[in-house]
Design a protein around this nucleic acid. Structure first.
Length: 781
DNA sequence: CAGTGAGCGAGCTTCCGCTTGACTT
């Protein structure tokens, strides 16, 4: 046994550090936190000054017992968890749970995993900072109180199994408010004028110059009047302005910026990014992927410099120290960078290669020179008008960091301003080839993507690198928010064109507003958000986290006792929970749309037990109400009376077949026909509102025919093993799981015994569907 | 990836941050 036991948080880190420290040291990892508040009840003793009731987490029992054993047989235990609030708490929980003695225990921290940094840390141990630990306890207890007191209010007032929390509820609020901004947005039209000028250069060849008018016109009349004026106007170059422009590289990646860029450049979801980054980290290819720091180690900067010199030359090098501007950043790690910057590419899956490439380029670029550009503006006078046309062009003089990397933006580029402008002289006169005045509309705000929501949360200081991806998953799993697309809608716009002395007036159309993989609030998300906002505005405040963070800082500085701070919060918060439970109504988000013209009864939409429904009539009326579910793409907030009436046209009886009636309807999986207790999906070409009895029979018979070919074998006493023909060929169905049949098997002669062998051989892979860890909450066993 | 289309009922659900397990000898 070693004389020294070092405990870090992650096994990959343990492995690296073990190499640096040699035989005298054994390095183990705690796998993050080892204890947490009890899952039974709130896990806080309110009678006893908020004493937290900690338990070793179910999945950490084994690790803790191993650590205990190792600690016992070591002379000194070195607690080397991260140097932030959570890391300090991990060290403290370890000391408590492993019953470490102060005289044998050292607390050490390091920011880079290099031999020097670690040896330096070992030479400069300190004690556990109990104030910092207390700040963490306050954070933990606050989150538990908020989450576990608010969620049950939702179970009672909205729907069971819902959840609320300091982070997730605000994330949902952002999406809800953005959606309402979009709904309330009225695009404003204006006329943008652009011109194509013709000139001759010194050699006499014709050159073209595109320019845009410095001002837009609010009305068609103004635009027409301007074009009218241009008919006889003279165009002369007023001035030429050249100004140097510098562009600087973005800082190296943090978790949040990596998620954003991987989303924009590679189309990864935030979870996907984290899963791939985890792989790269575990195989030693990149540094730790959950970080809020933009800092690079001296060693990394040194190798980056060497690489840049080798690749592009000395003048491309510019060493930069970036500093974090993020609210509440704790900077326990380096920025995300390649472990060995000299490795330009790596072995691995396509996704790993692409993400690594992105990280490598971003890291290298961050230590490269600014790009130097020259922006040219040519100002063109119009006789008889005091407006000016402006032609702009940008030329790269020195590419600098652009040689390897350019950060993407979320917005699509507007007018293209790149390219070289032809040489012009001051006073030169130009002829216009054509002048266009096009109607343009102001843009509504864009919906959030997963990654842009992460950026917003980070900006507000809400959530941590380790929780961005899980938070995004949680609000989708709770069905508050869903990822979806919106089809573009056609919009007409007016184009006025002046050419050859004549003005034409045309209507063109464009597609606008298409969105892919954006976050939309659901009806339940809207109702929960409005409810929480009404009764708990303090928790829903975008500054709530920032405010409590300030309080935690005071605790960490030893100025405030953490229990006092929690007491202040709880005394105000808990009574509101009580009064809300007592005084608030059940929330169904009801919206009254109007009157049914047929029956004269009221039509309303609301959230029913199983989702959003439309309802004809009131429940207190003698005649029972009639219900119909809303379709997937409809929302309580935006559905119209006409659309709601349409819902009641289904289910529809379409006739009889074999003495049983056929009913057409739309279900969760689209339109279908029900007949004799069986369901038959309708192809896209058939409309359930229109479909005839003859056509329905056709569909039923076609399905029967294909089902006949579906069953190949049935085995077992109760037919529990079935060999079926599926979309991807034959497979075995057994106890609700499906099993692959190995290639080169003759399906026709497959025996029961062979099937059972296949089932047992795949038993460990089938059924336990593997979920990426980033979206998962572990349940206590 | 495997073909689905809810409804009486008990008891359960939930937070945010750290971090990745892997049956035996």
């Amino acid at each position: 046994m070693s004389k020294n036991l070092v405990i870090v948080e992650s096994p990959a880190k343990a492995k690296t550090i073990g190499k640096f420290l040699g035989n005298e040291f054994e390095v183990m990892s705690s796998m993050g936190h080892i204890r947490d508040l009890s899952e039974k009840g709130l896990g806080i003793d309110f009678e006893n000054n908020y004493a937290p009731q900690y338990e070793v987490s179910a999945d950490k029992k084994k690790i803790v017992s191993e650590l205990k054993k190792a600690a016992k047989s070591s002379e000194t235990v070195w607690l080397a968890s991260d140097e932030d609030r959570e890391g300090e708490a991990i060290a403290w929980h370890l000391a408590e749970e492993l019953k470490l003695k102060k005289e044998n225990t050292r607390r050490i921290v390091f920011h880079e995993i290099t031999k020097d940094a670690i040896l330096h840390a070992v030479e400069n141990p300190r004690e556990i900072d109990i104030n910092l630990v207390d700040a963490q306890q306050a954070r933990r207890v606050l989150d538990r109180i908020v989450g576990f007191e608010l969620s049950p209010v939702l179970w009672r007032k909205v729907r069971p199994s819902l959840s609320a929390g300091r982070v997730q509820s605000v994330a949902v609020r952002l999406i809800v408010e953005r959606e309402r901004e979009i709904n309330n947005f009225n695009p404003e039209a204006s006329y943008r004028v652009s011109a194509l000028f013709i000139s001759k250069d010194a050699a006499g060849t014709k050159v073209e110059l595109k320019a845009e008018l410095s001002q837009r016109f609010k009305t068609k009349e103004e635009a027409l009047a301007f074009l009218e004026l241009c008919k006889s106007a003279k165009f002369t170059v007023d001035s030429i302005e050249k100004k140097p422009l510098k562009k600087s590289p973005a800082p190296p990646f943090t978790t949040s910026t990596l998620q954003q860029e991987a989303s924009r450049k590679l189309g990864f979801s935030v979870t996907q990014t984290m899963v791939v980054a985890q792989k790269l980290y575990e195989s030693g290819k990149i540094t730790y992927m959950r970080t809020d720091s933009v800092n690079l180690s001296a060693l990394a900067i040194g190798t980056a410099k060497q690489e840049i010199i080798q690749m592009a030359g000395e003048k491309y090098v510019k060493i930069r120290q970036f500093s974090t501007k993020t609210k509440g950043a704790q900077e326990a790690h380096e920025a995300i960078r390649p472990t060995y910057i000299s490795s330009h590419t790596i072995e691995g899956t396509a996704q790993e290669k692409r993400l690594y490439d992105l990280i490598w380029k971003r890291t290298i670029a961050s230590q490269m020179a600014d790009a130097e550009l020259e922006k040219t503006n040519i100002y063109i006078n119009i006789s008889g008008s005091n407006h000016q046309f402006i032609a702009s062009g940008e030329v790269i003089i020195f590419d600098g960091f652009l040689k390897v990397y350019l950060e993407s933006t979320d917005d699509e580029p507007d007018a293209e301003t790149s390219g070289i402008l032809p040489t012009m002289k001051k006073g030169e006169s130009l002829t216009s080839n054509e002048i266009l005045a096009q109607e343009r509309f102001t843009q509504r705000p864009p919906r959030y993507t997963e990654a842009s929501l992460v950026r917003k949360l980070e900006e507000l200081g809400i959530g941590r690198p380790s929780t961005y991806a899980p938070t995004i998953s949680t609000i989708q799993n709770r069905n508050y928010v869903e990822k979806g697309d919106r089809q573009a809608i056609k919009r007409d716009f007016n184009v006025l064109k002046l050419k050859d002395g004549k003005i034409s007036d045309k209507i063109k159309s464009e597609n606008t507003g298409a969105e892919k993989s954006k976050l939309f609030p659901t009806d339940i998300g809207l109702v929960v958000n409005d409810f929480l906002f009404e009764y708990f505005p303090n928790i829903m405040d975008y500054n709530f986290t920032a405010n409590v963070e300030k309080e935690f800082d005071h605790i960490a500085e030893g100025k405030v006792k953490w229990t006092k701070s929690i007491d202040n919060f709880y005394k105000k918060f808990h009574p509101v929970v009580e009064s809300t439970l007592k005084n608030s109504e059940r929330q169904v988000g009801e919206r009254i749309l109007g009157i049914d013209p047929k029956s004269g009864r009221q039509i309303a939409v609301k959230i029913g037990k199983f989702g959003p429904i439309a309802q004809i009539g009131k429940s207190e009326e003698e005649e029972k109400p009639v219900f119909a579910s809303l379709h997937r793409n409809q929302s309580i907030e935006s559905i119209t009376l006409e659309e709601a009436l349409e819902l009641f046209k289904l289910p529809r009886e379409i006739g009889e077949f074999e003495n049983k009636e056929m009913i057409a309807a739309i279900g969760r999986f689209g339109p279908y026909i029900r007949h004799d207790g069986k369901f038959y999906s309708l192809p896209k070409t058939d409309d359930p509102l229109e479909i005839s009895a003859e056509r329905a029979v056709e569909i039923i018979e076609a399905k029967r025919e294909s089902d006949k070919n579906k069953v190949i074998h049935i085995f077992g006493q109760n037919g529990e093993i079935q060999v079926l023909n599926g979309r991807f060929g034959a497979y075995i169905a057994f106890e609700k799981n499906n099993y692959k049949i190995p290639k080169n098997t003759d399906v026709a002669t497959l025996t029961e015994e062979q099937c059972r062998e296949i089932i047992t051989s795949q038993a460990d892979t089938v059924g336990k569907k593997k979920k990426p860890f980033a979206g998962r909450r572990k349940k206590a066993q």
